[in-house]
Design a protein around this nucleic acid. Sequence first.
DNA 1: TTTAGTATTGAGAATTAATCTCAATAAAAT
DNA 2: ATTTTATTGAGATTAATTCTCAATACTAAA
Lengths: 143, 143
Amino acid sequence: MDKKILNKFKAVLKKEQLKLTKQRHAVLANMIKSKGHRECDEIYDQLKSNGENVSRATVYRTVAILEKYGFLRKLELGDGRARYEYKLGLDHHDHMVCIECGQIIEFVNSEIELLQDKICIDMNFKLVRHIHQLFGVCEICQN
Amino acid sequence: MDKKILNKFKAVLKKEQLKLTKQRHAVLANMIKSKGHRECDEIYDQLKSNGENVSRATVYRTVAILEKYGFLRKLELGDGRARYEYKLGLDHHDHMVCIECGQIIEFVNSEIELLQDKICIDMNFKLVRHIHQLFGVCEICQN
DNA sequence: TTTAGTATTGAGAATTAATCTCAATAAAAT
DNA sequence: ATTTTATTGAGATTAATTCTCAATACTAAA
């Protein structure tokens, strides 16, 4: 794992009086390696098949820590399962979701981001995070 | 209940070979009356305490129909419970959610809507619905 | 490096929103 | 009024997630 990331993780853990365990390391490493929009069970299965010993409960717990400290972003796509994507140091984007095939497409629009910030300033709302998801039919599924 | 709305509901039901039952009427009437961002259990409890006989299962079933045909909008605020708001004939808005007190504030921004439409056109994505939620700390909770 | 102190883990139970089942019932069509 | 068809309700079921707690693994201090 990249040393900078690992050091940041160590720093966060120390600050919060948490310990760096094999399991936590494995979950973070796995998220960094296979970028995507991933369910906990998927992460769990993949670690298992790599022979790494991590329980489902620990995956859930770790992913929550990683989200809290900005390593991961949690996505709720409305199908009852949370997804996580690695985000540390990457540019912000939002998501389009195809309601036919489930494909997730990323989009970026800085104008929208600016307008969003402005709304929050105007309404004296301290923005922490946001969700902007477009649901519809992707190019492929339209044919 | 407003006659226009009722007639539209009747038309939808007929087209889908569904029947207009006391229960369906009660759920719709309740949603129209008490506008807000409502959980199914809340709707259920309120109907119960009004002496109206509707089961939890029927509330869930009815709310799904009403969403499908544009009477209601479903909100997923990331707390694992779906909310519904009455929307028929009302202007579109999105939501800010205070992560301290849970308050839901509505906001409107037509510029963002336009940009959003443009993105979809550019990417050849047929937009059906969208979610745009801002999570942060509201004015009151900042003090 | 050993020990003492504290946090973490895993297996399975518990929780919880939402959905499903199916016999009894109610609405619509004839 | 009768027949046909959809709906309802009670409770069982599902499925994602969280919880429990004894056994285990990390960390810091001696």
